[in-house]
């Protein structure tokens, strides 16, 4: 087990090197001079421009810039943004907000999706099931910003239950509405996935045998039907965590959440290599960690896989 985790962590190294290199290259290859763009319409002092160029190593060839950046990371230095703030500070300020938002969304979609999916699957073809399917179809087909605006209008303006924008520090109560919006799409997918999985499991031989053994329906549903149906659902939900982190950009924009999405978007526009690459690096790290957790979780849920490793 420990050996397996170690191997997976070692595998992360080439992945990280590759992604950082690619991202760094793409930012480098973006058209336009990022420093000139900073000054807008004004013509900058050539001496100042030269000093800034040296400070940000922009006068060096691409490969040197990349290795300077990489060397910095190993010393714990993620570089400096054009506004003079250390990138590590920006990371520390934004990532907790987005992670909090993503975890809240994940909990909402998982609990809601699995419960509704389970009831739907057990009552296949009944009224509850039909309504759940229609509602989930609506959520799947609507773009997230439409859902966000409608939610803002109904819950924020008409009912006044929540703020339409998130205040500084992003307290949990402010994040509830954006979390629901963020959860809505995967939530609908989870309902359908759970439902299909429950229907399939219900018809399996071992469920009939469980009845034959004299077990009650109240025991069979959680122990034999839900437990087995969860295997694909958990895998989906866990991978979805990574998607939620990245996919938060639109939602963060609409609700003015001071998270990763907004900051990253601005950094890309400004062509701030170190900032963009650092953000992406952390995202890749989280992705890899989540994937590892998913694989370990999979083994926990399904003993057939546990023993193959």
């Amino acid at each position: 087990m420990a050996g397996y985790i170690l191997r997976r962590l070692l595998q992360a190294i080439p992945v990280l090197l590759g992604t950082t290199f690619l991202i760094y290259f793409m930012v480098f290859a973006m058209p336009g001079d990022p420093l000139l763009a900073l000054f807008g319409d004004k013509t900058p002092n050539p001496a100042l421009l030269e000093r800034l160029r040296q400070e940000y190593h922009l006068d060096q060839p691409f490969i040197v810039q990349y290795f300077l950046y990489l060397g910095g990371i190993f010393r714990g230095d993620f570089g400096t943004s054009f506004s003079g703030e250390a990138v590590s500070d920006i990371l520390a300020r934004t990532f907790p907000v987005t992670i909090r938002l993503a975890i809240m969304a994940l909990i909402i979609e998982f609990v809601g999706g699995v419960l509704i999916g389970l009831v739907s699957g057990l009552r296949k073809g009944k009224l509850f099931d039909a309504s759940a399917l229609v509602v989930s179809l609506i959520f799947i087909s609507l773009p997230i910003f439409v859902i966000a605006f409608v939610a803002q209008y109904i819950f924020g303006i008409q009912l006044g239950w929540a703020r339409t924008t998130v205040s500084t520090g992003a307290p949990i109560q402010d994040l509830i509405l954006p979390a629901f919006v963020l959860a809505s799409i995967s939530f609908a997918q989870l309902i359908r996935l759970t439902r299909a999985s429950v229907i399939e499991t219900q018809g399996l031989d071992f469920v009939r045998t469980a009845y034959g053994k004299g077990l009650s329906r109240r025991r069979i549903i959680p122990v034999h039907i839900l437990r087995n149906s969860l295997i694909p659902v958990v895998t989906y939900a866990a991978t979805d965590f990574g998607v939620l982190l990245v996919g938060a950009t639109v939602t963060e924009g609409i609700f003015n959440v001071p998270g990763v999405g907004r900051t990253l978007y601005q950094a890309i526009i400004r062509g701030e290599g170190p900032t963009v690459v650092s953000f992406v690096t952390v995202m890749v790290l989280i992705y890899l960690a989540v994937n590892l957790v998913v694989d370990l979780l999979y083994g926990l849920l399904d003993p057939r896989i546990r023993y193959v490793k």
Binding site: L204, F206, T209, Y211, G212, S216, N228, D302
Partner: peptide, 29 residues
């Protein structure tokens, strides 16, 4: 009723199914 049937199944009438490969739940010991 389902309750009465549950008390007969397993207790008074045992059941051995056809295919041993698919009649044990793979995720429980």
């Amino acid at each position: 009723g389902s309750k009465q049937m549950e008390s007969i199944r397993g207790r008074e009438i045992g059941f051995v199914p056809q295919d041993p490969m698919s009649n044990l739940n793979p995720v429980w010991s």
